[in-house]
């Protein structure tokens, strides 16, 4: 008998003995349709300016460097100074229209996916979660996943208005944004909370294991449509 049939037969025999299969079937179906949220902790229920402040403090707690910018057009200036500080000229940026439309005079910028030798990468976040200071990256032509992991320094632009109080709000937003003929989620969704780290050598916490050694959030306060 093939493995799939065998496994399903065994599960069904065991489980049907305890509960009626029809009841089980509708139970599972309802659970998926109903999307039960068990419990959102108090910390995941912030609103307004307190929500942005919580996002910042939680991100900093996870060793993220957060820079607050008044508006999107401030991004190239801040990025240039970060590059100058690190004595690096090349910047690999995600092919996102917002970034492409900016004035990058004086920066050696290329747009594309991440490569093994990229030192500094720049992406735009899909959203953020204030509860734990987490960035949410959604893969697609404008946001290659490789850029989240390969550069030594990863800079991520996020608009304050895109920060959610909790993870559940982000799932809802992704469900709303899904195209009708495509899977509900993009190929990859990354929650990122701080720069890469390891404690595998004698439990000493070290930043920059395989992913970025430094994570810099560029938080844009201005509302944009």
């Amino acid at each position: 008998m093939n493995a799939r049939k065998d496994i399903f037969a065994r599960l069904k025999t065991t489980l049907d003995r305890v509960h009626n299969p029809t009841v089980r079937y509708s139970g599972a179906d309802q659970r998926i349709q109903g999307r039960v949220t068990a419990l959102i902790p108090q910390r995941g229920r912030s609103e307004g300016p307190a929500k942005t402040a919580l996002f910042v403090s939680e991100a900093e707690r996870a060793d993220t460097d957060v820079r607050r910018l008044a508006q999107l057009s401030d991004v190239p200036g801040v990025v240039s100074s970060i590059l100058a500080e690190a004595k690096i000229t090349a910047l690999k940026a995600a092919p996102d229209e917002t970034l492409q439309a900016m004035d990058w005079a004086g920066v050696d910028i290329t747009f594309g996916r991440g490569e093994g030798l990229d030192h500094v990468g720049l992406s735009v976040a899909y959203g953020g979660v204030a509860e734990t200071g987490t960035l949410v990256m959604s893969s697609g032509p404008r946001s290659p996943t490789t850029l989240n992991f390969l550069p030594d320094v990863h800079m991520v632009v996020i608009r304050a208005q895109d920060i959610a109080a909790n993870y559940e709000q982000i799932w809802d937003r992704l469900r709303t944004d899904a195209k009708p003929d495509a899977p509900l989620l993009p190929r990859t969704v990354n929650w990122i909370t701080g720069p890469s780290r390891t404690a595998d050598i004698e439990q000493t916490l070290l930043l920059g294991a395989h992913g970025p050694r430094k994570l810099i959030i560029l938080l844009i306060d201005a509302q944009t449509s």
């Binding site: 987490t134 697609g140 290659p144 989620l185 190929r187 990859t188 990354n190 929650w191 780290r197």
Partner: peptide
Amino acid sequence: EQSVYNTFFTGAKRPDDID
């Protein structure tokens, strides 16, 4: 509070994806 990376993957590379 959260592990650094929680990575959710759904299927293979999509037609428009660049990685």
